[in-house]
């Protein structure tokens, strides 16, 4: 079991430890604790339902950022049979914050793109915590075009705080790289499946976030600005992030209601980090289902519908 846990997960983790201890005693034949264990497990189930059934938006943001949450490479390991990473933007350098590759999922050829935050400290630094530079977005476009050229479905797994705000990123056209991706992804002639698996951080997410179906995992979030950023700009106080998360309406359910995402992918009880295998298997089934569905639609119609879908987003008042 994961050792890292969030404050609101604490009662659950403590109860689990207690159950584990009792199970150990039971196994060693020290005492017959069957009834007690069953009782505690029932209690655990209720506790989980209570806590996860009434999460605030801010708690959901924290779950999306959970240090033990599965990352892109974890999903690649669980979901794909073989994966060949495709490096480099062919121009400047390979950006390790975005990983691209050719994959087979249950025998189907798929091109995968995703941000990777990195698990260990060394990995996090190498991957710039999943915050990409322009060359990352250009690498993504390179493989996306490859997918389109050969009619292979494209799957984008989004998990980033945002595109990196740095000197080199600006010098090399961060805004331009994202703009071009948004425009190009909108009309690539191949099925595109986008899943927000963790953090959907603004333009950095949208840079690999335009597709035929936009799905979000149950405890992921998607926002125009981080709650901290919003709070510090509007109220000059980053500690008001919980209020900002409420105001910005960033959760999976909010996004469905706002018409921005099409589907919510359920996670194992307590979140993907509590059972990465199960989370990955649900995600894999979703991807395969969508590939099947989208492959049945002529590609011209797919592109037309994709553009129309984004054209319809937003709410305006029209005076007559």
């Amino acid at each position: 079991m994961n050792r890292t846990f969030l404050e609101f997960e604490k009662p659950i983790v403590e109860l689990e430890r207690k159950i584990d201890d009792l199970k150990l005693l039971q196994q060693e034949g020290i005492a017959d604790l069957g009834d007690e264990i069953a009782g505690l497990e029932k209690k655990l189930k209720k506790l989980q339902d209570d806590i996860y059934g009434s999460l605030t938006r801010w708690q959901r943001v924290q779950l999306a950022r959970h240090p033990a949450r599965p990352y892109f490479l974890d999903y690649v390991r669980y979901i794909t049979e073989n994966f060949l990473e495709i490096h480099g933007d062919g121009c400047f350098r390979d950006d390790p914050a975005i990983i691209c590759g050719l994959a087979r999922i249950k025998g189907k050829s798929v091109v995968l793109i995703g941000q990777e935050k990195g698990r260990t400290t060394k990995e996090k630094i190498k991957r710039n915590f999943g915050m990409a530079h322009p060359e990352g977005y250009r690498k993504a476009l390179k493989v996306a075009r490859l997918a389109a050229r050969f009619g292979k479905p494209l799957v984008c797994l989004v998990d980033t705080t945002g595109a990196y705000p740095g000197i080199g990123a600006e010098e090399r056209g961060q805004a331009q790289a994202i703009a071009v991706n948004i425009k190009e992804f909108a009309h690539l002639p191949t099925p595109i499946i986008v899943v927000i698996t963790g953090e959907g951080g603004s333009g950095g997410a949208l840079g690999i976030g335009v597709g035929d179906v936009i799905a979000i995992m149950q405890y992921a979030y998607y926002s125009v600005i981080s709650p901290e950023g919003c709070a510090s700009i509007l109220w000059r106080d980053a500690s008001k992030a919980p209020e900002a998360a409420e105001a910005l309406k960033v959760t999976a359910q909010d996004l469905i209601e706002l018409g921005v995402v099409d589907k919510v992918i359920p996670e194992p009880s307590g979140g993907a980090h509590r059972n990465p295998n199960e989370a990955a298997s649900i995600l894999r089934d979703f991807i395969l289902g969508e590939i099947d569905r989208l492959s049945g639609i002529p590609v011209e119609e797919l592109v037309k519908k994709r553009i129309e879908k984004f054209q319809g987003m937003g709410v305006v008042k029209r005076d007559i």
Binding site: I182, K183, A186, S202, G203, C230, L234, G314
Partner: peptide, 20 residues
């Protein structure tokens, strides 16, 4: 900011339409 994710989606709305 006050229009949240819907304002982010205007980036996609405008850019996608530019293809046409």
């Amino acid at each position: 900011m006050q229009e949240g994710i819907l304002s982010l989606m205007q980036m996609a709305k405008t850019s996608a339409t530019l293809n046409l």
